[in-house]
Nucleic acid binder design. Structure first.
Lengths: 344, 344
DNA sequence: CTGTTAGCGCATTCAT
DNA sequence: ATGAATGCGCTAACAG
């Protein structure tokens, strides 16, 4: 496989000097129209693409740092919610945001391999995914700071929430509001946050409580999971889920079966994503936006040039943000007996 | 302002050769522990950061093309919907996606200036925003292909929908379903798509129909706009909006006033974003995902190296995707008289 | 208008 | 184990 053509190649083919090629490349006026078109022709013929590394080296362009953000977009709202403040914050710190959509382990390894091999980023942001210590070491050796969002990683600063506590709180609420049999609609096993929420659920519901894992994080999957649960355990009167969309699916299924919500069955989501208020969904609110802004701020700190030589290396600490239960129309109030209708 | 320290600087300070510095930089085993720490010390002292352009030039790293995507995230769902397939498609074509959050004209010009000045991208994606012909020429001169999403631009391929036709269709439907007085809730004037939808609305509602522009694209703003409209024109019985979130706001306001929807007032949104089906919102569906995949595919084509030299320059054509009216619970059916209740 | 030359900062043989 | 020399592809004077 022949290497990419350089300005030398196109200069030769066009019968001119490399400076002339450089000139047309940079839109200089000091080139005769004829020469210019000849050169352009040679460029398109050879499929020439300037080597930006060479150019930036020559022009001593700013060494703008890039942060590679790896995210599995399995739950649209969550990732968008972190992306927005993230991109804003990074831009403010003069950092470029390169987005990588990671759908599975192969994707992740391929991208990470490339990142270290080609040294294509100066900062790394992992979202909802872990990496081994060898990986961490690789990046550390290259002085590429890492921050993690929604996933604790040894030796890497991260921003997380107490998923187990959040789900436990939700489950406890259902019970206090009179639920006799609670069940959990979870998501794909791969997600750590989901597993932690499962833990939280079982810690208060008891290990024997029914669980069903939806195949995906969307309404349809949530509905299917709920149907399976209800078929197997008709006595279920409380459904806690690991995600709002799954909760919406649960709500749809419950209604399709003629079950009154929250009178006959209560439902709780997780995230408090957009429109949950409109739908009246009770849910565990997670400060998704802060995930993004924390990540941006942390990366900015870590990537800041030491103002003065011999400055001590900067560090950032992991933080755990609080979650809160938002009670709306799909749950009853804790003090109320199930015979009352809490809805106004 | 002193320029960044290079390996020469740190070599001198550590009293070693640049090759040694390079070695510790790359984690080579062939360095004595003592020398290594000396060098590392010098590096942190000087705040050394390797110049990646130089490195990539030296190792002849792959010249992976990057596409800069500029988007104003004023409507979360829309942009996320295009981002997802976009990132997937680009990754498949071995292209990097660099995201720029553009909030206003200054942002846009600053980013575009940088992009051309530093030649920091090989492909450009404009979303919901226009640029002047001088700009187009700048990028063309640098052989940076441009594609546009949701905004027609002279001389650049774009993917759009017929906003006017879509909104006209929605408006017409309300009228046929018996609406006597329709009004429009629009969004910030800056967005072309919104202006086009306004046009479509007025083309069937008549120039005298009431209009109110919400300050932002969210539920609250939609609600406020609707309130203003209803206060000024109590006879309004049909509200068409330029966006689903605004429609949700309209719905909230209508209900707050005790107006029956769709019996007393019909409402239509635009986009058909996530959860609109659950909410039962009638809306004009726009194929947002296809916007993203079209952009990725087009950029991939435009940036593809000609397989064989002297290939003809590739081109892509603009496309206009179809929109369709999705009738749900916030509108009545066209054939029905307003005295009937279309809801099952 | 156009060709020649000299770096840009780093990795990499080669020597030592 | 370490240093000197060479080249990566391109831009920018400097000549002509």
């Amino acid at each position: 496989m022949p290497s990419d053509p350089t300005i030398y190649d196109i200069a030769r083919r066009a019968g001119v000097g490399i400076a002339t090629v450089s000139r047309v490349l940079n839109g200089s006026e000091r080139v005769s129209p004829h020469t210019r078109s000849t050169v352009q022709r040679a460029m398109t013929d050879l499929g020439f693409r300037p080597n930006r590394a060479a150019r930036r080296l020559a022009v001593r362009g700013p060494n703008r740092a890039r942060v590679a953000a790896l995210m599995p977009f399995f739950s649209a709202n969550f990732y968008f919610a972190v992306c927005e403040p993230l991109s804003k914050g990074l831009a403010g710190a003069d950092l470029d945001l390169v987005l990588y959509n990671i759908q599975n382990r192969e994707d992740k390894n391929r991208v990470l391999d490339r990142l270290v091999r080609e040294r294509s980023c100066e900062g790394l942001l992992l979202c909802s995914m872990g990496i081994g210590q060898e990986r961490v070491a690789q990046f550390r050796n290259q002085a590429v700071p890492i921050v993690s969002v929604d996933f604790p990683i040894n030796g890497v600063p991260s921003v997380t929430v107490d998923n187990a506590a959040g789900e436990a709180k939700a489950t406890r609420h259902l019970l206090r509001a009179g639920a006799r049999q609670v069940a959990l609609v979870s998501g794909p096993e791969a997600a750590l946050a989901f597993r932690q929420r499962e833990e939280g659920f079982f810690s208060v519901a008891g290990a024997a409580a029914p669980l069903h894992r939806a195949a995906a994080v969307n309404i349809e999957a949530g509905r299917a999971a709920t149907a399976a649960l209800l078929d197997a355990h008709p006595e279920i009167d409380g459904i806690v889920t690991v995600n709002d969309l799954l909760a919406v699916g649960a709500l749809a299924e419950a209604r399709a079966r003629g079950l009154q919500v929250p009178e006959e069955v209560q439902i709780v989501g997780f995230d408090d994503q957009q429109l949950m208020e409109v739908i009246g969904m009770s849910t565990v609110r997670q400060p998704m936006g802060e995930f993004g802004s924390w990540a941006a701020a942390s990366l900015a700190t870590l990537l800041a040039r030491p103002a003065t030589p011999a400055a001590t290396p900067t560090t950032v600490d992991s933080v755990e943000l609080p979650v809160s239960l938002v009670q709306r129309a799909t749950t009853r109030s804790a003090q109320t007996q199930r015979t009352l209708r809490p809805r106004p």
